[in-house]
Every structure is written in C-alpha cells, then in structure tokens.
Design a protein around this nucleic acid. Structure first.
Lengths: 141, 141
DNA sequence: CCACAAACGTTATTTTATAACATTTTTGGA
DNA sequence: TCCAAAAATGTTATAAAATAACGTTTGTGG
C-alpha cells in the first residue's frame, strides 16, 4: 500500500500540472473527457484524450489523483501523503465526493482477505449515498 | 442495503437465464462483450451488446450478479441472498475473483460515512492482490 | 555535447455502454 | 377469454472511455 511516490521523483511536467490544477479547481470528480473540455486545458494546447490520460496516469502514480472506478472519473487527492487505503463517499444527487481514510478498517479488510490466503496490495472502497447538503435539501422539499 | 429482490419477482426470462448460466460457468468475471462472444450465447440467438446489458441489469437488480467496477466485468454471486456489503478479492495474476462478505466491516465503513453526515446506501469494496494459487506459483519459480 | 529515457503530439482504433424506436411477450384484470 | 398495460426483446446507430502505434521533442545524466 505504501508508495510515497509523490514525495520524490521529478517535478510535474506542464501537462501534469495543468491537469492537476484543473482537478483541484473542480468541485467533483471529472472524467478524462470532462478535463479535455475545460477551457484552461485547451488553452494549454492539450487536445487529445491520450494527453489527458497520460497526465492522469502519472498523477495517480504519485498519489496526487485518485480514480473513482464507479464513475470513470478522477479527483484530486485533498489529503496529504498517506499509506493507508482510501474510501470515497459519492453523493448520488450532486455527484460530489468526499475522501475518507480507512486506517483501522484497512486492517480488517486485509484480514478478511488473508483468511482466504489472499495477499492484498490495494484496497478501494466506494460508498454511494447522500451528502449532508443534498440530504437536507431533500428533507426540506 | 437490504433489497432481497432475488427472493421474489417473476421468474428469469430466457435471456436472463442464459446470461446467468454463462457467468456461472466462467471461472472469472466476464465483460459484457466476453459474454456476447460465448458460443452458448450466440446459440441462444443473442447477438447485440444491448441484449447482454439488459439481462445483466436485471440480474444485478436481483443480486444474482455483481459488477466488478475496476474490471468493467460481471460475476455470478456465489453466495446466497445477503443484506450486507460485499467485497471482492481480485487476483492481478489470473484474473479470478473471490467474494467476501463484510458483515462487521460494513458497520465500520458506514460509521465513517456517518461521521461526515453522509447517509450511505451502498458499499463496494474491491481489493487487488494475489490469490493463493498464484502466490504459490510465483514463490515456486 | 551527446546519448538515452521520458514525455509529448497525432491519428487511428478498440473497448465499453447507451439511445431511439419498433415489435413481441407476459401478465393481470374486466 | 380477451384485452390493455407493462415488461422484455430486436435492431440499428451512436456515444463514451481508453489505448495502440509511431514519430518527434524535451530533459537529464554522463
């Protein structure tokens, strides 16, 4: 689970920095094509899907970006470096996500795997539901 | 989390039964297009992707099939009806998966969500690693 | 400065999933 | 039984997500 790739390695390239900034500026996960469509991205001269995917791959290697599997989307990692598994709370109303860390739960999950003789090297958790804002809005109506 | 849709509802249609049987016969998760390519499927007269997706959707509604998000693939649920969250152990060597139930962990995960004011209605866990067989084979070489 | 590796650009293609619309089948009353 | 509504299906086309292949540029260490 540990990599800390984001602590070392070369500086981000211009494309990588541009994509990371785009994700930081978004209030929810973006697909690669969402990113591609952003004005800031076009201004930077990025115009092919592959350009975006390449930048995203590097950013994920460094732990600066996470992929939300169930959305085919990418989100900036708003926590610092971390060794433990990450979970995502995905609001089915507004599409925003919240990252939660699973220090204690990871041990449990990996333990369930070990019971099966399975050597886990990566744990991903995605939970769907309603965020506080959307729950409140739904209750009000 | 509770649905038990598989306990009631109408009988499976021919298409649904055919797809379910195909997944039961596979030793690993299959993509919709993998399913589409199976001889048994073609023999049953199913030849369009949408036909497969429609059957898969219904089977998932009933909890008879699960989708592995990180593989874009579908697997037969080899456990009986269950209310609690399911996790998957995915072998990165052979591609086979193992389903594990997360009775105790789900409470913990949902609790972490509730801390954030988030009302969870679905939890998905996917863990990658090496299955016992592949780990043994790797150790032997 | 040069050689190598990494990143990038470009075009085409593959893989995964859904839209739109007509037809058939099933099912639950009248 | 028969009919109407709902569910499922067939068919064609298209959208959405991701990668392949290949050449060029950039950056970095020796």
């Amino acid at each position: 689970m540990a990599d800390h790739a984001h602590l070392d390695g070369p500086a981000l390239t211009r494309n990588q920095q541009t994509v990371l900034t785009a994700l930081k500026g978004a209030d929810k996960p973006l697909t690669a094509y969402d990113v591609l469509g952003l004005p800031a991205i076009r201004k930077a001269g990025m115009k092919a899907p592959l350009t975006i995917y390449r930048a995203l791959d590097k950013l994920m290697d460094r732990g600066l970006v996470h992929r939300i599997e169930s959305l085919n989307a990418f989100v900036h990692c708003d926590h610092g470096p971390h060794d433990h598994a990450t979970g995502f709370l995905i609001c089915t109303d507004c599409g925003r996500t919240l990252e939660v860390h699973l220090e204690s739960c990871e041990t449990h999950l990996a333990g369930r795997a070990r019971e099966q003789g399975f050597a886990v090297d990566n744990v991903r958790v995605e939970m769907t539901g309603r965020c506080p804002e959307c729950a409140a809005r739904a209750a009000a109506s």
